[in-house]
Nucleic acid binder design. Structure first.
Length: 585
RNA sequence: GCGCCCAUAGCUCAACUGGAUAGAGCAACUGACUUCUAAUCAGUAGGUUCCAGGUUCAAGUCCUGGUGGGCGCGCCA
């Protein structure tokens, strides 16, 4: 809570107590009512008086009016507030914006502002995300997961949590047997020299199609071959294991390239293959202990008490399931990493699965189960419907990457070819493309579907990541023109009185609150939206408050100070979304 | 059949978790580059917030019942 809100709350509290000494109301609950008016002209903060009407037996508007008069009196010595007014049932307050600027601008420039949220030491949390399958293609849907998970890692860290960013790679299972069956028996192509993992994904799709087109005895034959192959994989038969290792690496190399291009890093990578056996033992032990039940030759756990049905943990052929591995994975997370909180960023279609996993962990005696959290997110769909590899309309990540880069380079950056180095063109292309992709993935709530249209995503106008980094670039361009600008020099904050300047000051002032909320609510979209608004305010200010043509040297300095604080905040905020703005574009 | 999620401008989305006249972007139309980067800005137009009830000072937001769409509900992940 900031000083303006707190002072206002204390003031209102005192006045109300004076009005009615036996009035029971905590300061916190009053402060909780303070909000921001819908329009800037109304004021910076507002206090709605509806709730007081009953207690004080007066019309809300009358209370607002009385509060206004009393507050004017109360704060007449203070320089925090500029004015109090009542508008119907609302008490509106304008803060002294130079006072606000004084609180935030110097702190931004000396860096303290951005470490405020991390001051108190918080818990150790693991955020698991991405979880790609080897031997399958990496498409734009997977990209949403990476953008979300990566941003949450950054947000939690900013807020002082000790975060372990974890990946969990699906390198075992039926899909691999399918892919390798096709690779060994049907494939005639020579593996490409690059993006071999993606090529494996094509084989997997081809395999699925081949299997679907088959019927009768032929199909049975194939299915037999595939399960035999799976069995060999499970028992680590040397020849197939060698092929598995080689092809698995192709996919892992692809993933590394993707993560590196996106600027995503993991502190730890789990593989399904390493928790497979442990999971099996856990489940068998659980069955012996009577915790789990046998049913039709398989093992599962009865969760009917929690209305979660019967949760299957081990197949009747003794092979593991997704659930088997998730139990062992959780055990390792708790025991080897000592985490207190565990976040799983996984698609919404698995909501029931994770409710079951967490309930099972609880039954197994892990008290951390109550602090496990599944963050569900909705699918990325195409305008014509769901992506499906069968319909052949999956948009692979590499395609998005390629087209985005080509578009950015050909339409904008190519024109700098003569004055920029090839290296700068290349790195700027990447930064712009990443900004467009990540912002597109993050600017709406996780629980809403994203309708992905390549055509729309290539547009770089309006509410896009490109708009945000463009605003940053414009500020950097201004600052470059004032070589000896010193952000620590004394300035006269009183000069920043244009409404556009005030709007910017307020946005900077609220930045940390938003970042805090974005993490606690698992919604990077809150930050994305705020940054868009910050840029909108900046672009307005840019066209109305020139630095170069400022009326005085002092105003010029003050604006430079404000704008460069905007750039610093923008850069910090973008970074929390996993976006790195270029210095020029 | 049961459970979860979604429904707001022509399209894609907001709305500080119950508060003021429901806001942005795209698309359409009008205007602004001899100006710190026009990947921009200013403006016009666009709404029965899916429907029907209910809760209260106040409902896009909460509760009930529908409609439409998505997903899930034991040997996939």
């Amino acid at each position: 809570m900031n000083i303006f809100v707190r002072s206002l709350g204390v003031g209102i509290h005192q006045i109300l107590l004076k009005l009615q000494p036996n009035y029971e109301c905590t300061l916190e609950s009053l402060v909780g009512l303070i909000e921001t008016p819908p329009q800037q002209e109304m004021g910076d903060y507002a206090f709605p008086c509806f709730a007081l009407a009953k207690v004080f037996r007066k019309a809300p508007a009358q209370i607002a009016n009385e509060l206004m008069l009393a507050l004017q009196d109360n704060f007449n010595e203070s320089n925090l507030f500029e004015s109090f007014s009542s508008l119907g049932p609302y008490l509106n307050v304008k803060v002294n914006s130079s006072e606000m600027a004084k609180q935030v601008l110097p702190e931004v420039h000396n860096g303290n502002w951005f470490s405020k949220n991390s001051l108190e030491q918080k818990t150790r949390v693991m955020i698991e995300f991405s979880q790609p399958n080897t031997h399958k293609g990496f498409h734009v849907g997977h990209c949403r997961n990476v953008a979300l998970g990566d941003s949450l890692v950054r947000l939690f860290r900013y807020n002082g949590y000790q975060v372990i960013a974890a990946n969990y790679i699906g390198d075992v299972g039926t899909h691999i047997a399918k892919c390798l069956w096709y690779y060994q028996e049907k494939n005639n192509e020579v593996p490409p020299s690059v993006r071999k993992g993606e090529w494996l994904g094509e084989l997997y799709t081809a395999s699925t199609l081949a299997l679907e087109s088959q019927t009768g005895p032929e199909k049975e034959e194939t299915q037999k071959k595939i399960s035999a192959l799976l069995a060999k994989l499970e028992e680590k038969e040397p020849q197939i294991t060698q092929i598995w290792e080689e092809t698995r690496n192709w996919s892992l190399e692809d993933f590394d390239q993707i993560y590196s291009w996106l600027g995503t890093e993991f502190d730890h990578v789990f593989y399904e293959s390493e928790v497979d056996e442990e999971g099996k033992q856990l489940v068998i032990q659980g069955a012996e202990d009577g915790l789990f039940q046998r049913s039709d030759g398989a093992i599962g756990v009865d969760l009917n008490d929690e209305k979660l049905g019967f949760f299957l943990l081990l197949k009747s052929d003794g092979n593991t399931l997704y659930s088997t591995k998730d139990l062992a994975l959780a055990k390792r997370k708790f025991e080897e990493f000592g985490i207190e909180r565990s976040i799983y960023v996984v698609g919404a279609e698995q909501t029931l699965h994770f409710q079951q996993v967490f309930a099972t962990l609880k039954k197994m005696g892990y008290e951390q189960a109550s602090r496990c959290f599944h963050l569900p997110y909705a699918l990325v769909v195409l305008p014509e419907g769901k992506m499906s590899s069968r319909a052949g309309n999956v948009i692979l990540f590499s395609k998005l990457q390629q087209e985005m880069c080509d578009f950015v380079r050909n339409n904008y950056l190519e024109s700098h070819r003569e004055s920029w180095s090839d290296e700068e063109i290349q790195s700027t292309t990447r930064k712009v493309a990443v900004a467009a992709i990540k912002y597109g993935m993050l600017n709406q709530d996780p629980n809403k579907q994203i309708t992905f249209s390549l055509k729309d995503w290539l547009v770089s106008e309006g509410d896009t990541g490109v708009y945000l980094i463009y605003a940053y670039v414009r500020i950097r361009s201004i600052v470059r023109q004032f070589e000896n600008f010193d952000p620590h020099a004394e300035i006269d904050f009183e000069l920043l009185k244009h409404s556009h300047e005030k709007a910017l000051i307020r946005k900077l002032f609220d930045f940390n609150d938003i970042v805090y909320q974005a993490a606690e609510q698992y919604r990077p979209s809150l930050l994305a939206r705020t940054l868009f608004e910050l840029c909108k305010d900046f672009s307005r200010c840019y066209s109305s408050c020139s630095v170069k043509h400022a009326e005085s040297k002092d105003l010029q300095l003050a604006r430079l100070n404000l704008f460069s604080a905007v750039a610093a905040t923008l850069s910090t905020g973008l970074n929390l979304l996993g976006i790195e703005p270029p210095e020029r574009m």
